[in-house]
């Protein structure tokens, strides 16, 4: 199935856009609240000097996060919160560039999320290969795969870009930094 056919799949579209952008923001705020709450909870267990500053920092940060969370849930709180903006402090409203805002349509959101999922997959694949297969091998696979599949380059360009990048990495990281990334790699036989 081609990428276009896949992206036109109504089921996929429903799954990908199941959560509205507002809900995603709410989720992100919730993650931050949980993260800060965990750190705050742990802080109480430390010795005096080890907890003074973290308590001073974490307590208001946690409260501010709760306010932001409330704003994400309640439009009224959000309205109040938006009054406190930098543009109110520095008077720049007359300059057109500061007043431009845009709203994303549903199809924009769907496209953006597909792109986000795509790049996330590439990053995860790269990370896993980097850890389990090796640095040079993972770079080779990712470059070949990305240029051929995502960037839709022809075979010659894909190999050319990959080769130039590997040469650059060899010169900088192996020759200059002496990190010896290539020593036990697929390309070890090419080394002088």
């Amino acid at each position: 199935m081609s990428k276009n056919n896949l992206s036109d799949n109504p089921l996929l579209k429903r799954v990908v856009t199941a959560i509205s952008p507002d809900r995603v923001e709410l989720l992100f705020t919730l993650v931050l609240v949980l993260f800060m709450g965990t750190l705050l909870w742990q802080t109480f267990g430390y010795e005096d000097f080890g907890k003074i500053i973290p308590l001073i920092v974490a307590t208001p940060t946690f409260v501010f996060l709760l306010v932001i969370l409330a704003a994400a849930i309640s439009p009224r709180v959000n309205e109040m919160l938006n009054e406190y903006q930098v543009r109110d402090i520095i008077d720049v409203d007359e300059i057109e560039q500061f007043t431009q805002e845009s709203e994303d349509s549903e199809s924009d959101v769907y496209d953006q999320r597909l792109e986000f999922i795509g790049i996330t997959l590439w990053i995860i694949i790269f990370g896993l290969l980097f850890h389990y297969v090796g640095a040079v091998e993972s770079i080779t696979i990712v470059l070949l795969g990305y240029y051929r599949i995502t960037a839709k380059q022809n075979v010659v360009r894909t190999v050319l870009y990959t080769g130039i990048t590997l040469l650059f990495i060899y010169l900088v990281f192996d020759m200059v930094l002496e990190m010896r990334l290539f020593t036990d790699s697929w390309f070890a036989f090419l080394l002088p």
């Binding site: 931050l32 940060t61 996060l65 406190y84």
Partner: peptide, 11 residues
């Protein structure tokens, strides 16, 4: 956002 600036700094 003033508040989000503070939160970013706090985190």
């Amino acid at each position: 956002s003033f508040l989000k600036g503070l939160v970013a700094g706090g985190v």
